[in-house]
Simulated scan of single mutants.
Amino acid sequence: MLPAYIPNSMAAVFGGGRPIDGGRVMKDGRRILGDGKTYRGLFAGIVCGVLLGLLQTALLIPVSELLDISFPSFSGSGSSTMVVLLSLASGSLFGDMFKSFFKRRLGMQRGASLPLVDQLDFVLGAWIFTYLSCTGWFIMNFTRNVMIAVLVISPLLHLTTNVIGYLIGVKKEPW
């Protein structure tokens, strides 16, 4: 899940610039996504997610041998490593954008808290993109137990990283 976890943080770190929605509003008078979703953040987040996945791939065999543990790879079941990594990373960001779209429709401001949805939107986006593009790999690696673990761990990791982002000045809110 690391290639899906890192893109949102890196989008916040490297983001800024032109918003994806171009400042456009919908018929309800609200922005489509808002200023927090930028092209630079989107591309930086995807690149960082893919790079982290490639690093994991490079370390897979040495770490597996060192710890005498078998770790899953980002390929197999007819899927290539790059497709899996791009699906996890881009799905993560698109899941977050999808949530932002609906938060705007609900009249929520940028940064407003939506408990659990804020902590799991990127997970669901990553899973949907990866399932659609790499079904066999997804089914082989995301067993019921793995999915439960991700759903339990992700909110805790999300809150921790957001507090850190807030403390170092990258985020305006600690959630």
Results as ranks from 00 to 15, higher is better:
Met1Glu: 12
Leu2Gly: 11
Leu2Ser: 04
Asn8Glu: 08
Asn8Thr: 09
Ser9Thr: 12
Met10Ile: 14
Ala11Pro: 00
Ala11Asn: 02
Val13Asp: 14
Gly15Glu: 15
Gly17Asn: 15
Gly17Pro: 07
Arg18Asn: 07
Ile20Asn: 12
Ile20Lys: 04
Ile20Arg: 04
Ile20Asp: 10
Gly22Pro: 09
Gly22Val: 14
Arg24Leu: 05
Arg24Ser: 11
Lys27Val: 12
Lys27Ala: 14
Gly29Trp: 06
Arg30Trp: 03
Arg30Lys: 13
Arg31Ser: 15
Arg31Val: 07
Ile32Phe: 09
Ile32Lys: 02
Gly34Glu: 10
Gly34Leu: 10
Thr38Trp: 00
Tyr39Ala: 13
Ala44Cys: 13
Val47Lys: 04
Cys48Gln: 02
Val50Ala: 10
Val50Met: 10
Leu51Gln: 11
Leu51Tyr: 04
Leu54Asn: 04
Gln56Pro: 00
Gln56Asn: 10
Ala58Thr: 05
Leu59Phe: 14
Leu60Asn: 08
Val63His: 02
Ser64Met: 10
Glu65Pro: 01
Leu67Asp: 07
Ile69Ala: 08
Phe71Ile: 07
Pro72Glu: 15
Pro72Cys: 10
Gly76Arg: 03
Gly78Asp: 09
Thr81Gln: 12
Met82Cys: 02
Leu85Thr: 08
Ser87Tyr: 04
Ser87Asp: 03
Leu88Pro: 00
Ser90Arg: 01
Gly95Asp: 01
Asp96Thr: 05
Met97Arg: 09
Phe98Trp: 02
Ser100Lys: 09
Phe102Leu: 13
Lys103Ile: 00
Lys103Arg: 02
Lys103Tyr: 00
Arg104Ile: 05
Leu106Thr: 00
Leu106Gly: 00
Gly107Gln: 05
Gln109Met: 13
Arg110Met: 06
Gly111Ile: 09
Gly111Phe: 11
Ser113His: 06
Ser113Arg: 07
Leu114Asn: 06
Leu114Met: 15
Pro115Leu: 12
Pro115Asn: 14
Leu116Met: 15
Leu116Arg: 11
Val117His: 05
Leu120Tyr: 08
Leu120Lys: 07
Asp121Ile: 11
Asp121Tyr: 00
Asp121Gly: 03
Phe122Pro: 00
Phe122Ser: 02
Phe122Arg: 01
Leu124Tyr: 12
Trp127Asn: 04
Ile128Trp: 02
Leu132Asp: 11
Leu132Ala: 15
Cys134Ile: 02
Cys134Phe: 02
Thr135Lys: 11
Thr135Trp: 01
Gly136Asp: 12
Ile139Arg: 08
Met140Ala: 15
Thr143Leu: 00
Asn145Met: 15
Asn145Thr: 10
Val146Ala: 14
Met147Glu: 12
Ile148His: 09
Ala149Ser: 13
Val150Pro: 01
Ile153Thr: 11
Ile153Arg: 03
Ser154Arg: 04
Leu156Pro: 00
Leu157Cys: 10
Thr160His: 07
Gly165Glu: 13
Tyr166Glu: 01
Leu167Val: 10
Lys171Tyr: 01
Lys172Cys: 01
Lys172Leu: 01
Glu173Gln: 07
Glu173Cys: 06
Pro174Ala: 01
Trp175Phe: 11
Trp175Asp: 08
